[in-house]
Design a protein around this nucleic acid. Structure first.
Lengths: 261, 261
DNA sequence: AAAGAAAGTTCCAAAGAATGGAACTTAAGT
DNA sequence: ACTTAAGTTCCATTCTTTGGAACTTTCTTT
């Protein structure tokens, strides 16, 4: 096992709730010997990957990582463009918006725009949630064929909530509906009382795929506002899809039942 | 030499003009053998530090780095980062540096780096001084619109010294000059015989705004040294501004009269 | 379509870094 | 001042890393 593995594991220890780590954190989180943890953190600091907080024994990511991370957004310019759309919509309506990407059968938030409302959904960047049980995940899975989706779940899955798909057949039916309508929706799935609207999008030249999502408390959003969210998201996504010549993009297609749910 | 060094070097290869790298890029940029470059890139991809662009041979930073980089924002406050810059400049030239924030129409020093010279300016953290009559204050006021500045002084103000602005018109003119040049300067304002150079900076995500300041005895600093102070401060501030995507940052713009005062 | 060039990958033994237990030092709490 | 927790350094063993060369793939040219 290379030291790179250990270094990457250290980076994965950081999260929205853990902005810095200590030697003992690594010992407990990664189960590595103290000696290794101590040397690894120092080595990573010496290389400019981490920096010490003040003159304490706490380590946090260094500027280099912030700079390189920033570049990711330009390198994967699809994320940057999608983020701009979500940011605009989020600003407009005041609800939280974010961009997610799929990693296997999980989705991860890449960027987030916190809403302005007192009651708003708080997303944590980097958290992995099951793809089949989220609107962002289904927006991305809908871009795959049914066979590819089945291949992602060789052993099936178990629904984490009432409103999530309970088996493969139900998932495929909801993906078909997502393709038809041009957007995915969730309700009480990951979090009770929360709705989310997502649209999937890709760039064939780079192979990148992202989901644009707006999420809001179900109780406070009128049907009309929900529709305008769907329209704004779909419209922004369609513009980018036209730009990237995304052939697997599903345009908005509101049925009469959608417009009056 | 650990493989971490090589990995960090790879990360340093990325820049605003180089969003992805190939094996040969590393060979030319870092002078490493092809074999190493090939294996290193693959190892970094396997660890989730890099990802391949589509299915090409190009590597770019991966999501993990973007996430960890985002955390840097929260982990290191704007004050931390600004303080690091001022500390560096202060160490370099030996003059006193500090960071100030604005509270209404006053500014307060948040951190200080005492100079090394026998004749040096001593700042006291926590002291409140009028914003209009200091370089730090004007660096921060310059980030506001003229109307916002007027609103801060509904009853006008009286200049505490000869060289401070005497009325609102004079203040606004000096703020305009600050915006044009990218830095604010004071001379004999709060303290006789003391000059100060300040640059304003903000983080739109958090709303924080700080001024970076270097202050020194007017008599002992040559024009060339003053210029290098200005350049160092502005350069450090610009790096942070790029990271926070501060849209109200005013970049350095030295006129011919500035370079030879 | 075939040859040539460029870019990338794999192989190998030598060289050198990483490992983890234990002893040691430093910091923190009582 | 004592006790405990946290972090660092040391060491021989083990296993990764190294870089040249041969090999394969991919792109360019005629």
């Amino acid at each position: 096992m290379s030291i790179l593995t250990a270094a990457a594991d250290v980076l994965r220890c950081f999260s929205s709730t853990r902005h810095d780590v200590t030697v003992t954190d690594l010992v407990t989180l990664l189960g590595m010997p103290k000696s290794n943890a101590s040397r690894l953190l120092r080595a990573m600091r010496d290389e400019g990957l981490l920096e010490t907080v003040g003159d304490s024994k706490r380590y946090r990511p260094a500027l280099l990582l912030a700079q390189v991370g920033q570049l990711y957004r330009f390198a994967a310019s699809l994320i940057d463009r999608a983020d701009a759309v979500v940011g605009r919509v989020s600003d407009q309506i005041g609800h939280t918006g974010y961009i997610s990407v799929r990693r296997g059968n999980e989705v991860v938030a890449a960027t987030a725009h916190p809403g302005r409302h007192a009651l708003r959904v708080v997303t944590s960047i980097g958290d992995r949630i099951p793809a089949f049980a989220s609107s962002t995940g289904r927006a991305l899975l809908a871009r795959l064929s049914d066979d590819e989706v089945r291949a992602l779940y060789p052993k099936g899955f178990t629904a984490p909530s009432e409103t999530a798909p309970r088996d493969m057949d139900e998932l495929l039916a909801r993906l078909a509906e997502t393709r038809r309508a041009g957007f995915a929706e969730s309700h009480d799935e990951a979090v009770r009382g929360v709705r989310a609207i997502s649209v999937g999008l890709g760039d064939p030249t780079t192979g990148d795929e992202v989901a644009l999502c707006i999420t809001f408390p179900a109780a406070t959003v009128e049907p009309g506002e929900r529709l305008s969210i769907i329209r704004s998201l779909a419209e922004g996504a369609a513009e980018i899809a036209a730009l990237t010549q995304d052939k697997r993009f599903f345009p908005l297609n509101l049925s009469s039942s959608e417009t009056a749910p």
